[in-house]
């Protein structure tokens, strides 16, 4: 018997899509800020001004989305819980071995499971750390032009530990890591959608997966 399971609750889906929009707009505008590839023809234009404005607005949106997701890891269902991301929880290594075998064509079927795969939880944990570094370095750089206690607290304190240029470099490099993640993420979604036949791709819109009843 097949049954429909409500896996991704609304806040999980919402933050996911804010992140998609955020990462896309932050990457494009951020790349422009680091390397202005379009030049204005007249001083009346405001290209860099707009790029920075969009970057800052998207950054706030992304940071808030990250906070909502943190909150939901405490308040949400078992698929969203922080416990899923505990790298040392029982049986995690075995699950990781199983899913890795599937990715390396050593097994035909992916391991059964409803929420994140073991591999995904490790990757997302790393991704969350990258997000935190990106948000902190971003606000540290922002605090140079926006002086105030709030921005000092949100990242400006990092400037007393690292030089602005070092922060700028890592802020930029991590963007590429997140882009590389996004490519792999979409592909694996498609791969599992085909292999599991649980509707993983549509689940991030609807929240529901279709799984075999146990």
């Amino acid at each position: 018997m097949l049954k429909r399971v409500y896996v991704w609750e609304f806040p999980v889906r919402l933050t996911h899509w804010i992140n998609v929009l955020g990462i896309a707009s932050l990457s494009i505008t951020g790349y422009y800020i680091g390397n202005p590839f379009v030049h204005a023809v007249s001083t009346d234009q405001y290209i860099m001004g707009w790029m920075r404005f969009i970057h800052f607005v998207a950054a706030y949106l992304f940071a808030v989305s990250f906070l909502i997701r943190i909150y939901w890891s405490l308040a949400g269902n078992k698929y969203a819980s922080w416990r899923v991301f505990n790298p040392f929880s029982a049986g995690k290594f075995k699950e990781l071995k199983e899913i890795t075998k599937f990715y390396l064509f050593m097994k035909k079927e992916p391991p059964t499971g409803v929420g994140h795969t073991a591999c995904a939880t490790y990757v997302y944990l790393g991704l969350f750390i990258l997000f935190i570094v990106e948000i902190l370095t971003g606000f540290a750089l922002y605090s140079q032009s926006h002086v105030g206690f709030l921005w000092k607290l949100m990242g400006g304190w990092m400037l007393s530990l690292f030089s602005a240029q070092t922060l700028r470099l890592y802020h930029h490099l991590i963007m590429w890591l997140i882009i590389a993640f996004s490519i792999a993420h979409v592909y694996i979604g498609w791969l599992l959608d085909r292999a599991e036949r649980s509707g993983i791709m549509s689940s991030i819109f609807s929240g529901y997966k279709t799984v075999e009843e146990e």
Partner: peptide, 23 residues
């Protein structure tokens, strides 16, 4: 940084493509 970053993203894309073909 951009050369390295582009390299990382390209490696991810190449890995994905190779996996898709093998699959």
């Amino acid at each position: 940084a951009d050369k390295i970053g582009l390299g990382i993203a390209a490696a991810a894309a190449a890995g994905v493509a190779a996996h898709a073909i093998a699959s």
